[in-house]
């Protein structure tokens, strides 16, 4: 197993006038390729900062962020965009679908900018929405919307799938189904998945659990035998 993602002493300090707010005070962790990693921590711990930095949406004040051997911490905005475009698949908490594109079109929207896309319909079928291709997001349930969102992320064939509380807006069962989809994707496709959540209950399903507290990594647990989502209750 090779190290796919490696954060070393990543600090993020926001300056609000005189006051400095330290969002990340030196985060170190590594994720192997094909791992299903869960970043877990309470609100305000710095999870989102990690996600932002890892997703190329924000840059670190200090430290290095190696993704597939490239240090994105020093990328320019343009490089970051290219990085997001080609290497990252993003699943949002609130799905963030373009409301006036159909499910299929939402997927295709992402595909049209990427180098080596998958077939949109296939992906849709993979996420179990083969029947609802032409529905608008508003016509879909939350779970379905999230599936579309995942499909959109996957279709790009990213190196890294970043999920920000993908179940946060979903009910329990739907949430489970989504997590299952993500886990299956990881397993079946060897996709590296980073899932950010405040819900530590789902930690057992991950290959690696990174706990963050007060802007630092408090604990990294490698789970050699992750359990299936179905077996987890919370």
């Amino acid at each position: 197993m090779e190290t796919f993602v490696s954060l070393k002493d990543v600090k993020k300090i926001y300056k609000m006038g005189e006051v400095e707010i330290v969002a990340a005070a030196g985060i170190d962790f590594e994720i192997q390729k094909g791992e299903f990693a869960v970043v877990v921590g309470p609100s305000g711990a710095g999870k989102t900062t990690v996600l932002n930095i890892l997703g190329g949406m924000d840059t670190a004040t200090e430290g290095s962020v190696l993704v597939d051997g490239n240090d994105i911490a020093h990328y320019s905005q343009k490089q970051l965009t290219a990085y997001r475009r080609d290497d990252i698949g993003f699943v949002f908490q609130f799905y963030n679908l373009i409301p006036n594109l159909t499910a299929l079109e939402n997927v295709e929207l992402a595909l049209q900018i990427c180098k080596d896309p998958m077939d949109a319909k296939e992906v849709m079928e993979e996420v179990g929405l083969g029947e609802r291709l032409d529905n608008f997001p508003a016509q879909l349930s939350g779970g379905e919307q999230q599936r579309v969102s995942i499909a959109r992320a996957l279709a790009k064939n990213p190196k890294l799938l970043l999920c920000d509380e993908p179940t946060g807006a979903l009910d329990y069962n739907t949430g489970k189904a989504i997590l299952k989809l993500l886990q299956d994707t990881c397993r079946n496709k060897g996709m590296t998945v980073v899932l950010i959540t405040h819900n530590s209950a789902i930690a057992p399903m991950a290959d690696r659990v990174i706990r963050i507290k007060n802007g630092r990594v408090s604990d990294i647990v490698e789970n050699p035998e992750p359990v299936s989502v179905e077996t987890i209750e919370w």
Partner: peptide
């Protein structure tokens, strides 16, 4: 919506 597009990797 525009932020999402940006996240999806749309250039400015």
């Amino acid at each position: 919506e525009l932020a999402t597009l940006k996240v999806l990797g749309f250039y400015n």
